[in-house]
Design a protein around this nucleic acid. Structure first.
Lengths: 164, 164
DNA sequence: CTAAATTAGTTTAGAACTAAACTATCTCGG
DNA sequence: CCGAGATAGTTTAGTTCTAAACTAATTTAG
């Protein structure tokens, strides 16, 4: 038993002369997928919730005054329609409230309920430990460097996206 | 016009004392989401197809002898059921073929059809240029370093996932 | 040789997400 | 003040994806 595990992912069978750009993209996607897979499974098993719901709660937790649907949508980087659905579910579950904005009747202000806050506070430290464990193989210096290079990539993506 | 664009994403309003691990994860996710958004839109506009279909074709393109459903599933890092649905669609579109495996009657071998190969060959160079453009803000050295650090992260993720 | 366990793939129900069309409200130029 | 356009959010139709239950074929242990 304990065979050498042959890992298969998007990089498998990649031609050795593949462009650096494409290799970076595929590896980035692999890392994201692996982390999401772990976090999804853990959130489901231990808190019976999903990444999307957790992320939405986490944005609200950082915004004491709440956020509008549009602010949520841009921070979560998903469409308005998606936020509508997620919010519907969280309101049903009693974790967030959706109140009309007095100044602008088109707007809605979403806030954590106290139940929602409690639930999120219970998840946060556990979630943090999962992430720590996943990255335990990197030194602080490597993480800092990775963060910086991802920052450069993010800048590049913003620039490429912006110029048309 | 041309206001300073205030970028909003998952990192917005993050407490400054947030753990390095979490920052890395959120930034990684932001970068992946931004790239996927661009590629999704481009694939739809110019080739009327999706990332999932493109990725499946791309795995087949690297496997001259075709792949079984299970091999596709592990390389794409998605569930078997997902591959069943994607393959159904691509077979319908005439881009791939699904033939029974003589040696093992449980298995199916999926291959690019010549139409599929042609279609993929038409997309590849264009797709590559999109990725190049998105990463144009990084030097070769930065990309190489990023690739290496992502490799370290991938190792860490595999290690954390393996020791259950 | 055969029953049990494993493996390959499909099906089902449902969450997450998009794009586009839509409603309602607000803003602004004339 | 009013109509055109912009903005906030919802709805709809459809794709992607998961998890779990399922079918069928293969392997393995006794």
């Amino acid at each position: 038993m304990n065979d050498a595990v042959t890992l298969h992912d998007r990089e498998s069978a990649l031609a050795s002369d593949t462009k650096l750009e494409l290799k970076v993209w595929l590896r980035l996607l692999t890392c994201t997928t692996l982390i999401e897979r772990e976090v999804r499974q853990s959130l489901r098993e231990r808190f019976d919730t999903t990444i999307a719901r957790f992320d939405l709660l986490s944005q609200l937790d950082r915004a004491p005054k709440g956020l509008t649907m549009g602010e949520l949508s841009s921070r979560l980087m998903v469409t308005n329609g998606n936020v509508t659905g997620l919010t519907d579910a969280l309101v049903r579950e009693g974790l967030v409230s959706r109140a009309p904005e007095p100044d602008d009747r088109r707007s809605l202000r979403i806030r954590l309920t106290s139940t929602g806050k409690q639930f999120f506070d219970a998840m946060t430290p556990v979630h943090e430990r999962w992430i720590d464990r996943l990255m335990a193989g990197l030194t602080r210096a490597e993480m800092a460097h990775l963060l910086e290079l991802l920052g450069r990539l993010k800048q590049s993506l913003a620039a490429a996206g912006a110029q048309k």
